[in-house]
Amino acid sequence: MRRIYVKEDVCIGCRLCEIYCIVQHSKSKNIIKAFRNEPRPLPGVLVEEKGPISFALQCRHCDDAPCVESCITGAMQRLEDGRIICDIERCVGCWTCIMVCPYGAIRRDQNRKVASKCDLCIGEDIPVCVKNCPNEALTYE
């Protein structure tokens, strides 16, 4: 199972990972349209910043995933290729997954009242955050 890792030492806090994640999960996948004319999805990547330190954090797609084990609806599930996704049709926004994720990698989508997280860009060989990180701070290995 390949995962996204971050090299904190070279993360420059530009947040392009978030921007490309939003575009990838938008309706049109056109960066200008996605930002200007469409409802903006929450990015699945979360950038933490404090002073000069910054890093991007994505779901680890744990082997022993507490979010999947704890999900009260079955929305949080592991696909056959190992990635964990949240089926927002089934999610009711109880935030149990947020309570158990030891990385704090799941977000509350307050508009849609569902959990939002990284899906490793279904259909892409390399997640777009990794592909577009200008400083190669993200790796997919």
């Binding site: 070279v10 420059i12 400083n135």
Partner: peptide
Amino acid sequence: WGIATQDPYLTKRLNPEI
């Protein structure tokens, strides 16, 4: 560009691998 600086916020911009 993270080259002629010692500011930790800026030096990160030069990834030595790149």
